[in-house]
Every structure is written in C-alpha cells, then in structure tokens.
Nucleic acid binder design. Structure first.
Lengths: 221, 221
DNA sequence: GGGCTAATGTACGAACTGGTTCGTTAGTGA
DNA sequence: TCACTAACGAACCAGTTCGTACATTAGCCC
C-alpha cells in the first residue's frame, strides 16, 4: 500500500489535490478494513485526514465510490506483486512451491486487503463487478500458473489435470483462510494460525500439499 | 437451522414465548448474514417478525447480545452435524475423504453460517470469546480427525505428521473459501466456485488434495 | 497584478437507528 | 373468578450519519 509520504511541506504549501486524494484513500482503506462498509464512518475517515469530509465528496462523490476506489487500489497492489513474479526459470515443482510461498507471504503481509475482500464478498462483489478498472486487469498470476502447469505436465512431473484457476483457488483458499478466519479459528480451536512460531510449518504445509496433489500417483487411488 | 414451524395456531393462540424468541433468532440470522453486524437493522429484524422491536430487547437485551445468540445457535447446528459423523468404520483413507466431503457439503448447504463467521472474524471473534456456551463445546470433528489420523499413521498409510487441528484447517479453508469468496473470485476470474456443474470436480479435488498430502512420499521431495 | 478556477472549510439538516417509556392484555394459579 | 405476572405493542427519544449549501482562498495563466 503506497502510503502517502510527507512531501516537501517545508514551504507550507497547502493545496495539493493529489496528496489530499491519496491521503483520503489511505485512511479510508484502514477504516473500511477495520469496520466493514456499513460500519465505516465517513466522518471518522475525514477526521483522520488533515482535510475535511467535504473533500471526500469532492473527490470521490460518496461513500460507495470511495469504497470502490479503495478496492481498486488494494487490488492494484496485489496485481503489481504478481507482475513481478519471477519463478519460470525454476523447474515446475520448485516454481509452484515458490509461487505458493509468495502468495502465502503476500496474504500474511496484507491483512487489510484480506478484510476488504471479505467485506466485498459480503456485498456479493457488486463494486468489483461495476468497476471497469478491475474488470480490465485479470490476474497476471494466472498466466504464470498456466505456463508452469503446462511445463510440469509436459515433463511428466504433474499428473493431476487441474487448470490454473483451480490451482489458484486451492492456494488462495489456504492463504486467505489463515488470515481471514484467524480469529474465530483461534477462539474455537486455541491455535493462532498466524502466530510467528507456526509460520514456517504452515508455509511448508501449503507447499507440500500443493505439490503432493500435483504429483500424486492417480492410478493408486 | 431449525426454522420455526407453524404451530397449531388454528385456535388463534397469541402468546408463545418460545416461538417468538425462535422467530426473532431465525429472522436475525438472515439479517446479520445478509448485512453484517453494523449493516443489520434491528427495526428490519422486528419488521420481518410477527412481533415488535420491543420483544427483541425484552428477550435478548440488545443488538449485540442478539448477534451472540445468533452465533451460538449457528455453531450449535454445525456441532450437531459433527456429532453425527460416522466414518470410523471406514479405513483411514476413505474416512478422511468422507470427512472432507461432509465438510464440503455442509459448508455449501449453509452459506448464511459462512457469512456469519466472516462477520464475526471482522469483529475479531469478540462475541465467540465472550460466549461461555461456545467456549464449552469444542469441535467434535477434531476428535474424529484425531482418531483417524492415529489409525492412518499406525497402519503406515499416512506419512505426513500433521495434527488434527492443522488438517481441519486445511479442509475447512478450501470449503470455506469456496463459499465465502465465491463472489469476488467469480467476478475476477470468471468462474463460479459454487456452480452446480463444478460441484463434483471440486468435491473430488478436495479429497484428492488431502489424501495426496497425507500419503505423499516425503522422502522423494 | 488581476481574474479565474480548482481546491478547501464550516455549518447545517433530514433521515435514520438503537434503545426506552409507558401502557395493555393473555393466561394461570389460588 | 380474580389477581398477578409474563408477554406484548405503539409511540417516542436522543444521538448519529450521510450528504450538501454556502462561503472562501490559493495558485496559475495572461
């Protein structure tokens, strides 16, 4: 998340549309992630900004559009990360494992993003559906997975015939759940899925699971 | 979810504490699942009941306690289902697969429960943490998993040394994500994870994944 | 330097929302 | 049958909450 950094304010410059806009987005991201859409307060967002509520309506039009803008920026961050994926020089098994680990790391590092996605799911993805920006950019990661899977199948290493979307769902579900359901899972089963001392175990477990699935001897079942 | 069934109203009986309470819970479950905690409206819940808002406060005390009561009842349903698990007569591989499938089916059949859990996670499980009832009952499924894992390891079928909680997390994450993130996933990747014609594929995929992980040849990695 | 527009701040209001006050009635036990 | 209590309903209230009308100013362009 590109947090607004202090620009050269020494001169006491007061008008800066770009940074006002960005600051609103920063604060709104935290507020929506904290309280959900209905729970988020426009006044609260304004108060934590060094500008006023009037500006939120001036730049974004309303609470709803602000939330859409927050989502768009949040997704752009993960898309960015995906675009920087560089695993295709590895052999298929190592590439998939690395990909899974990067997904794992990214989800853990961005709990606010996870919460925003949960919120958006509560709203049946209506903001995503209405956003041209989000419709346009697919997921770069999918293309990467597609190529790794093809290579793995060609070399005979991968026996399963999943497609890239399925594998992405499999990897994401584990990474996402671990963060999104951390609290209820912890409260009910007494284990913090995001505890630091469990991290390596779960990270390895995810890789093991995906690789085991892809390379399993299907004829044995 | 034990929906309130029409009792013998022919006589025009008007007072029935138990059924008024139950009806409020039914409606509240839907409303909280639909709109989240902050988005849910006490007035709306009252309106959809054949009683009034006054009764909600009379029986539950407030919105917060009502939500806790909704959660408690929702969890009791899944605990009930878990208690009826009967898979230990199967061999370990079949037992795990069956368990995974039952979890899969249960999550799919109870989307409102999934949404409530998502909502509760947004609130960092504070209601669960404060509920004695929920603290008391653990998860019967965990005990079942524990025994199957022990049997599987003893017979040499299972090579992975996961514990029951981890395996439960693995299975749940896939089943939960498929329902909870259905909308964003569908909007972004153009695939409905809960579409009827995909159902068997994902159901099988889950079982394959878990079994592959448990029986993988660890020395080969 | 003067005007023009983008940017900004203040104050307010209409609608909503959780919760309560006050009064009423059905059913039951003596 | 009568009194007493659990169950119930209508109206109301105080505090919020999103959104806006109106006034103002900084900075750019000529």
């Amino acid at each position: 998340m590109t947090t607004v950094e202090e620009p050269a304010r020494s001169g006491g410059r007061q008008r800066d549309a770009a940074r006002t806009r960005a600051e609103i987005l920063d604060v709104a991201t935290k507020e929506f992630a904290r309280a959900g859409y209905a729970g988020a307060r426009v006044d609260e967002i304004a108060a934590r900004t060094r500008t006023t509520k009037r500006m939120i309506y001036y730049y974004f039009g309303g609470k709803e559009q602000l939330f859409t803008a927050v989502l768009e920026r949040a997704y752009s961050v993960i898309r960015q990360a995906e675009q920087e994926l560089d695993v295709e020089h590895l052999d298929p098994v190592a590439a998939i494992r690395r990909l899974a680990e990067l997904t794992f790391d990214h989800h853990e590092a961005h709990p606010d993003f996870i919460r925003l996605v949960s919120v958006e799911n509560m709203h049946e993805a209506e903001h995503i559906a209405a956003s041209e920006e989000l419709a346009r950019i697919g997921s770069p990661a999918l293309e990467v997975i597609r190529r790794i899977l093809a290579a793995g199948r060609e070399s005979g290493l991968f026996t399963a015939d999943v497609d890239a979307v399925d594998l992405h769902a499999m990897i994401s579900s584990f990474c996402f759940f671990r963060v999104s359901n951390r609290h209820t899972f912890g409260a009910l089963f007494g284990r913090d899925l995001v505890a630091a001392d469990q991290r390596e175990r779960y990270r390895t477990m995810l890789g093991d699971m995906v690789i085991a699935y892809l390379t399993a001897d299907r004829t044995a079942d």
